[in-house]
Amino acid sequence: MSNITSILLLIFLAITFLQSGYDKLFYWKDNLSWLKGHFAKTPLKNQVPLALANILVLELISGILCVVGCIELLVSRGKVFGFYGAVFSCVTLLMLLFGQRLAKDYDGAKTIVIYFMPAIMAVYLLNWK
């Protein structure tokens, strides 16, 4: 289990993004309604459905890549899928951070930073040869 840290980080990211994607997919109207209010006073106010769809796709891609990355690490010690899962996770979190900062939701932005730390750690660990 030489890759246990990477595996645990990928599981963390997979749970985070697959659950969030599931929530957006199956509770689309509730999420859209809340986000329209959240971004009502920002330049994104007319782009909320498109932004939500974009984040949904990125979260699902991130989560799936992290799951495949875990399997790849366990089966062949390969790091390609896990690395891309971690990178997609970071990009997704940066987009969420940008939205929270734009909406002046600084507490929400702080929460995203907490998720960003393990994601960037995964990128670092999975980028080693």
Results as ranks from 00 to 15, higher is better:
Cys66Pro: 02
Leu8Glu: 09
Thr5Gly: 06
Phe98Ser: 15
Met121Ile: 13
Leu32Lys: 01
Phe98Glu: 14
Trp28Ser: 02
Thr16Gly: 04
Phe98Ala: 12
Met121Trp: 15
Ser33Leu: 15
Gln19Met: 15
Cys70Arg: 01
Lys29Pro: 06
Trp128Ser: 07
Leu94Thr: 03
Leu25Asp: 08
Arg101Val: 12
Phe81Ser: 06
Asn127Gly: 15
Val57Cys: 14
Ser20Arg: 10
Thr111Trp: 11
Phe98Lys: 10
Leu18His: 06
Ile61Glu: 01
Tyr106Trp: 12
Ile112Leu: 15
Thr16Gln: 06
Thr92Tyr: 00
Arg77Met: 13
Lys79Thr: 13
Leu73Gly: 09
Leu25Lys: 10
Leu97Pro: 06
Met121Cys: 14
Ala40Met: 11
Leu58Cys: 04
Leu126Ile: 00
Gly21Phe: 04
Val48Gly: 02
Pro49Trp: 13
Ile15Thr: 09
Phe17Gly: 04
Val68Thr: 04
Gly85Ser: 04
Phe26Arg: 10
Leu60Met: 08
Ile112Thr: 15
Leu58Lys: 09
Val67Gln: 01
Ala51Asp: 08
Met1Lys: 06
Lys110Gly: 12
Thr16Lys: 05
Leu96Ser: 09
Leu32Pro: 07
Trp128His: 11
Ile4Arg: 09
Ser89Pro: 01
Ile114Arg: 11
Gly63Arg: 00
Trp34Lys: 15
Lys129Met: 07
Gln100Ala: 14
Ala122Gln: 03
Gly78Thr: 01
Leu13Ile: 03
Glu59Val: 00
Ala86Thr: 00
Gln100Leu: 03
Ala86Ser: 01
Gly37Thr: 10
Glu72Asp: 09
Ala86Met: 02
Gln47Glu: 15
Leu125Arg: 06
Lys104Gln: 14
Ser76Ala: 13
Trp34Cys: 14
Leu58Trp: 13
Trp128Pro: 08
Gly108Trp: 01
Phe17Leu: 05
Ile71Pro: 00
Ser20Ile: 04
Ser2His: 15
Val57Asp: 11
Thr16Ala: 10
Ala109Arg: 06
Leu60Pro: 04
Ser62Met: 01
Ser20Lys: 00
Leu58His: 08
Ala14Thr: 04
Met95Gly: 11
Phe26Met: 10
Tyr27Ile: 12
Asn54Trp: 05
Ile55Phe: 06
Leu50Gln: 14
Lys79Ile: 06
Val48His: 02
Lys129Pro: 11
Ala103Lys: 00
Leu50Ile: 07
Gln19Lys: 14
Ser6Lys: 05
Ile4Trp: 12
Ala86Leu: 00
Trp34Gly: 11
Leu50Phe: 14
Val75Asn: 05
Arg101Phe: 11
Pro49Thr: 07
Gly78Lys: 03
Ser89Tyr: 05
Ile7Asn: 03
Phe39Gly: 00
Asn31Met: 09
Leu125Tyr: 02
Ile112Val: 13
Gln19His: 14
